[in-house]
Design a protein around this nucleic acid. Structure first.
Length: 110
DNA sequence: ACCTTGACAGCGA
DNA sequence: TTCGCTGCCAAGG
């Protein structure tokens, strides 16, 4: 992690509370990088920190980014379930296909 | 420097 | 909801 952008992204991901999930684009804009969803994905792909809650990052529609059946897919799915996140057909409950999603993903308290 | 690939997102059909 | 197209940025060949 050399550039501050990556640091911001990492921070944003680490800011996702357990039991909650966030989309790549959501994380990106939380990191101050609107439109950099793919950067988040690439960053996770090159991520080496095991402490990073990467499993809390899903696609905008709430589906797992990995191919159904793949090791990573099962891994993420298992981790999410372990946190109480409802996952059905590779899709996460609590996330809606509708936009204007903000604090809905980051806690309804504030 | 050019083209392709990738853990994506948004919009229209 | 699913499929296709476009926009986006960085790394690899």
């Amino acid at each position: 992690m050399e550039n501050p952008a990556n640091v911001r992204v990492i921070a944003a991901i680490r800011a996702i509370p357990a039991g909650q999930v966030a989309g790549y684009g959501e994380v990106a804009r939380r990191a101050g990088l609107p439109g950099r969803a793919r950067m988040v994905a690439r960053l996770l792909a090159t991520n080496d920190d095991p402490c990073l809650p990467w499993h809390r990052v899903v696609r905008a529609d709430g589906r797992i980014a990995f191919a159904p059946g793949s090791a990573s897919y099962l891994e993420q799915c298992a981790r999410l379930r372990s946190e109480g996140v409802k996952v059905e057909a590779g899709r996460v409950r609590g996330l809606r296909p509708a936009p204007t999603v903000d604090q809905q993903l980051w806690g309804d308290h504030g």
